[in-house]
Simulated scan of single mutants.
Amino acid sequence: MFRSDKRNDRAVAAISTLIAAGTTIRGDVHFTGGLHLEGVVEGSIAAEGADAVLTLSEKGRVVGEVRVSNAVVNGTVNGDIFAAERLELAGNARVSGNVHYKVLEMAAGAQVNGKMQHQADAPRQLPSPTIADIDADDVEAAHA
C-alpha cells in the first residue's frame, strides 16, 4: 500500500525502437526516446534529447562508443560510454572501455575494464573583478 517503487524516480522514456536478438547493425545509430537493444551494433550509438534512454539487454552487444543521456547496461560494450545524466550497470554488464557518468548505479557482478570518471556539472564562470578588487600594487606590477 505504501510501497515506494524506485523506478518511478528514474528518467524513463517509452521504448520507441527495438533492435532484436539476431540482428546486427554495422554503422552508427542515432535515436530519440527509448532504444532497447538485444542485438549487436558495430558502430557508435548516440542519443538526441535529455530524456533519451538506452537499454542494453543481457544478450545485447555494442562495439563502439556510446553517448547517451541515460542508460541501463546489462550486456557487453566494447568502447567508451558517456552518460550525461544517469548510468546503471546491471549485474551482467561487461564494459571494455572508459566510463564517463554523472550519476552511477553499479550492481554486484558488473565489470568495467577501463577508467571510471565522474562528470560534474560545468563549473560556473567567476565574475570579472571590479575596480574595488584591484590593488594599487597589481596596477604597478602590470605596468612594470
Rank of each mutant, 00 (worst) to 15 (best):
R3N: 06
D5C: 02
K6M: 05
A11K: 12
V12G: 04
A13G: 08
A14I: 14
A14L: 15
T17D: 02
L18Q: 03
I19R: 10
T23F: 03
T24Q: 03
R26D: 09
H30E: 15
G39H: 08
V41N: 07
E42Y: 01
G43S: 12
I45T: 09
D51L: 08
L54A: 06
L56H: 05
S57D: 11
R61H: 03
V63I: 11
G64Y: 03
G64H: 05
G64V: 01
R67D: 12
V72H: 04
V72P: 00
T76V: 14
V77G: 07
N78M: 07
G79Q: 12
G79L: 06
D80P: 01
A84N: 02
A84M: 00
E85K: 10
R86M: 04
L87H: 12
N92R: 15
A93G: 06
A93F: 05
V95L: 11
Y101G: 02
K102Y: 00
V103K: 04
A107L: 13
A110C: 11
V112W: 10
N113Y: 04
N113Q: 14
G114Q: 08
M116L: 15
A120E: 13
D121N: 12
P123T: 04
P123W: 05
R124E: 15
A132Y: 08
D133P: 03
I134L: 12
I134G: 02
I134V: 15
D138G: 09
